[in-house]
Design a protein around this nucleic acid. Sequence first.
RNA 1: GCCCUCGUAGCUCAGUGGAUAGAGCACCGGCCUCCGGAGCCGGGUGCGCAGGUUCGAGUCCUGCCGGGGGCGCCA
Length: 536
Amino acid sequence: MATESDLAGAIASALAGLGVEVLPDEIRLERPQRLEHGDWSTNVALVAAKRSGRQPRALADELAAALMAAPSRHVEAVEVAGPGFVNFRLAPGWLHDALGEVVTEGEGGYAAPDLGHDEHVQIEFVSANPTGPLHVGNGWFASYGDALARIMGRTGWRVEREYYVNDTGGQIRMLGESILARRRREQVPEGGYQGEYVAELAEHYDGPEDVVAAGRFAAARILANIKETLDQIHVRFDEWYSQASIEESGQVAETIELLRGKGHVYEEDGAVWLRSTEFGDVRNRVLVKSNGDATYLAGDLAYHRNKFLVRGFDRVINVWGADHHGQVASLKAGVEALGVERDRLEVRLGQLISLVNGRMSKRAGHYVALSELIGILGPDATRLVSLLSSIDQATTLDLGKVTAESAENPVYYVQYAHARIASIGRVAAERGIERVPLEAADLSLLVHPRELDVLRVLVELPRVVTEAALERAPYKVTNWVRGLAAAFHGFYHDCYVMGEGVPAELTQARLWLVEAARVGLSVGLGLLGVDAPDSM
RNA sequence: GCCCUCGUAGCUCAGUGGAUAGAGCACCGGCCUCCGGAGCCGGGUGCGCAGGUUCGAGUCCUGCCGGGGGCGCCA
């Protein structure tokens, strides 16, 4: 934002003139919550007061006086308030400049800062075991991972989406046993999978009485179903990476040998251990059990060696449920032992989604299927409700409530704003009104509070996208989109674009405002993977 | 027992060192001669408790209480 950097520069030179030294990043401009505190505000006088040997208010007064002596563009007043804030009151022109930036840079260019510098990042998410249909908790993480990929993709990262398919090991055997038991019309064994889908799959299984064969058959069918469900909410992976392929290719043994060569492995009680405590773990971990089988950790390390050292990702982000918290320390230790800087592996733990009547469990068959939720809410609302809050927030899902609220769902509010914009375009076309070029429009006519509200929200988008990308927090985009929709609905209600008695010049200026709002909604919804419809 | 995480309005959640803590839902009342009323406007007793850090704490630190999760030669 041009205005923001103008102000920062003016503050820096004013402080220099006062003989106060500050670091560039100590000059922070923020948008005050309350309009009466101006359009921009800085707390630099509070931060630098002690160092300059002045009281905060005194320094603020001097700074304000210096800034008013040579005001920057658009500045109408500089005021000192509270303990020593310096507030800038700007003429509406700064928002008109901002409107110009939005529509000139457009959907592709506005709020697309290069933060990633082409770093190659893999985001691995969902990765639910193919032992049952996805539940709504998986859906939450699917929306999160996909939105994060979109946001980082917009801000300069090269992103790949990956799903790790856990298609081997004891759970597949257990799935096979459950299938076979069902086929024999017997009770599913202790610890087996109870869901209805197991019975259905058993009906279609006509292979041998072999747990592995039955397990693989079922896993393949389930995985196909998982892909279908994810496709419905527009979540598509670049890679479906098979755990079995890691094991069968000998990469597990190679990885253990690599670790052994680096001296991080020892033998004890007939097992092979990783000295993970040397890399921050609370205890050492077994890689190869005394019966000769590799542990899950060994496989996971082979997988991560593959990510970093074979495929060469600069950064890997794993999106996991909080129930995998216990794996983080040993995985990070192992990755570091492999010679990869530990910061290149990021594990985002999302809080679990629980049901009002208890935690979900695939084994017990107690869960709400994601496909069921999609069937009720539709893809867009499903995505939006799961992106409303931070994944750090544990949420309790009441299916009855979510569906009851669906008619009042926030997705309609936001999409309705976009549909209204499209509607304005249709009416303009009917009436033969064409938008003049931006240079020919007089944006200074936009002075209605509702108009300025819309622009004030639009100004925030670059900052919001930046925070969302750096903090891996897509819900910030959701909040922003809702705020823009609210501002637009207010504008739409109070300011007719083509109403009776609206001068032609004002219509033109408002058409540009509408276009800017369209760009904002379109960018925001695109980052969330939610459709921006022209009519509803 | 130890570790992680969360605790903000009746409910779902924003607010990650700033000024008088905000939205949505639900509830009550108002608003359509013109671009879509799935909209707009108005109505609020709330930061789990107790200390600490500093100009300033919902935010950072410590302890306690409460919810969730984790501490395997399971995956």
